[in-house]
Design a protein around this nucleic acid. Sequence first.
DNA 1: TAGTGGTCTAGACCACCGC
DNA 2: CGGTGGTCTAGACCACTAG
Lengths: 233, 233
Amino acid sequence: MSLADQISADLLERLQSGELRAGERLPTEHQLTDEYGVSRATVRSALRRLESLGLTVTRHGLGTFANAGTTEVRADLRQLNSLSDTIASFGLTSEMSYRSRAIRAATAEERRRLELPARAKVLATERELTADGTVVAFSYDAIPRLVFPEHLDIHTVDGSLFAVLEAHKARVATALTEVHAASGNEVGWGPRPAASNYVLLSQVHYLENARPVMYSNTFFVEGRFTFSLIRTR
Amino acid sequence: MSLADQISADLLERLQSGELRAGERLPTEHQLTDEYGVSRATVRSALRRLESLGLTVTRHGLGTFANAGTTEVRADLRQLNSLSDTIASFGLTSEMSYRSRAIRAATAEERRRLELPARAKVLATERELTADGTVVAFSYDAIPRLVFPEHLDIHTVDGSLFAVLEAHKARVATALTEVHAASGNEVGWGPRPAASNYVLLSQVHYLENARPVMYSNTFFVEGRFTFSLIRTR
DNA sequence: TAGTGGTCTAGACCACCGC
DNA sequence: CGGTGGTCTAGACCACTAG
């Protein structure tokens, strides 16, 4: 963990604990430089991270100010992380459980998104993410069968799919993501959350060489996550 | 325009002109340092910008590589546009109709988001966007009263609010956007679309000096729009 | 091992803001 | 005016990757 990461994590905690309240000015960059004993470049790197999360606003000549709503789980939409990392980065204890793992023929949609030929096969998984005992997301994922060696024990597929892919020398670099809204009981399985609205991220993940490697539909329970991003003209 | 901006713009041109093709490695940071006669920090700042646009991928120990297929994105969520422009970019001929315009006391939420004092007033509007005779979006917007001159005929407020703001020398530069999912009949008014799922973009718009100038909650009818973006690790 | 990017320092000067 | 963030420099050392 870099110095800048440690400092932004510490500031995040100070924001979430209420030590720094919404609208209040944070210490100046010079003060933070002294306080943490690092260079100003490092302080600025930490502050940039907070701002990209929408937790602070920095104004030239004035200072950096705490934004409201810093107690929710916020995820920078531009930043691509595994599901586990997204949740872990906010200090939540989460569990991921697989409902199914199967090797089957790719659907037409999967072939289109993953640029696969007819009759191609995929490893398809259904997963559920829980935090504090309640469901926070359902995810349906498909990975081309040929990413894996001939003999694959699908029961070794567990935990983060990003990690599984990396174990097979396939590192996810980018994703093309579509944002949708969904609701109803067709989403997920088992005991559903009372509020049945979902933010659906439909994503095609690519390797560094721009080859598609995973197609995911992840349904995030509305209210448990706040996806944010900064848009510019 | 900062040095880093000039360099990233120049590299962008080299990427788009085909001088640097998809998959190819860009010059090393050290080479770019010499080439442009700037420090490595400045070069890295320029490269970070390209990467955040999804145009390049930088790999530790290897180099920076041009990405492929980055021109196909339909509607980049990172790009902030007025509601009218957003809809126009989808090739829809749209109509915007105001359901209401009012000057009223700001709600607690509006005061918080817009950093307004108690008893501050806002210009509040409710708008409906239709295309081909069906509703495609509902929008609730609030602008601080003091953005406008003393005597404002609210009936002159029409069309794009971005344009209205610019007519009063307030140019929207950025927005902090939260992505949510919503559904049900509390959203909107009049004849609702049959499918009642919405992608809610909850946005605080800022001027170039980082002052908040408009708080919007826009409900996009699911299925009529596809918001997409490129995410990178 | 050589070369790459990742991080960090300790300054410097500029641009913006409120008083 | 004094204080703030915005930008930039010229180094340094570390971590990663390929051969």
